[in-house]
Computed example of a mutant assay.
Amino acid sequence: MARIHPTAIVDPKAHLAEDVEVGAYALIGPEVSIAAGTRVGPHCVIEGRTRIGRDNHFYQFSSIGAMPQDMSHGGEVTELVIGDRNTVREFCTFNTGTFKEEGVTRVGSDNWIMAYVHLAHDVQLGSHCVLANNATLAGHVRVGDWATIGGLTGVHQYVKIGAHAMIGFQGHVAQDVAPYMTVDGNPLAVRAVNLTGLRRRGFSNERIAVIRQLHKLIFRSSLTLEQSSAQIQALLAEQGGDSVADVQLMLDFIAGSTRGLVR
Rank of each mutant, 00 (worst) to 15 (best):
V183W: 00
N205A: 13
P179M: 08
A178F: 06
R191W: 07
S204V: 14
V183H: 03
L195V: 15
V183G: 06
L195I: 15
S204W: 12
G197F: 07
R200Y: 09
D176K: 09
D184S: 11
V177P: 01
E206F: 02
R191S: 02
R199V: 14
D176Y: 07
G197W: 02
A178P: 07
D184R: 09
P179I: 04
T182Y: 07
A192I: 05
D184T: 02
Y180T: 07
M181N: 01
M181Q: 08
A189P: 00
A192K: 14
P187C: 02
A178I: 10
R201F: 11
T182E: 05
A189R: 13
Y180G: 02
G197P: 02
N205Y: 08
G197M: 06
G202P: 08
G202L: 14
A174E: 12
V190N: 01
G202I: 13
Y180L: 04
A178M: 14
A192V: 07
A189V: 10
V193A: 00
N205F: 08
N194T: 02
I208E: 11
L188K: 02
N194C: 01
S204M: 12
A192H: 12
D184G: 06
D176T: 07
R207S: 15
L188P: 01
A178Y: 02
A192G: 06
A192Y: 03
V183R: 03
A209W: 09
Q175G: 08
M181C: 04
T182N: 09
N186T: 09
T182I: 09
P187M: 06
V193K: 01
F203R: 14
V177G: 03
P187V: 03
P179L: 09
A192F: 01
T182M: 14
N186W: 03
N194M: 02
L195R: 15
D176N: 10
L195Q: 15
Y180A: 01
P179T: 11
L188I: 08
L195C: 10
T182A: 05
T182Q: 09
R199K: 15
S204Y: 10
V193R: 00
P187F: 04
T196M: 12
N205E: 14
M181E: 02
L198K: 11
V190L: 04
G202H: 12
S204H: 12
D176F: 07
T182V: 13
N186H: 11
R199L: 10
R191P: 00
A178N: 05
I208D: 09
V190W: 00
A178C: 15
D184Y: 10
N186S: 11
V183P: 06
T182K: 07
N186I: 05
G185L: 05
V183I: 12
A192Q: 14
V173F: 06
A174D: 11
R201N: 15
N186R: 14
R199I: 12
F203A: 13
R200V: 08
Q175K: 15
A209I: 12
R200T: 09
R201M: 10
Y180R: 10
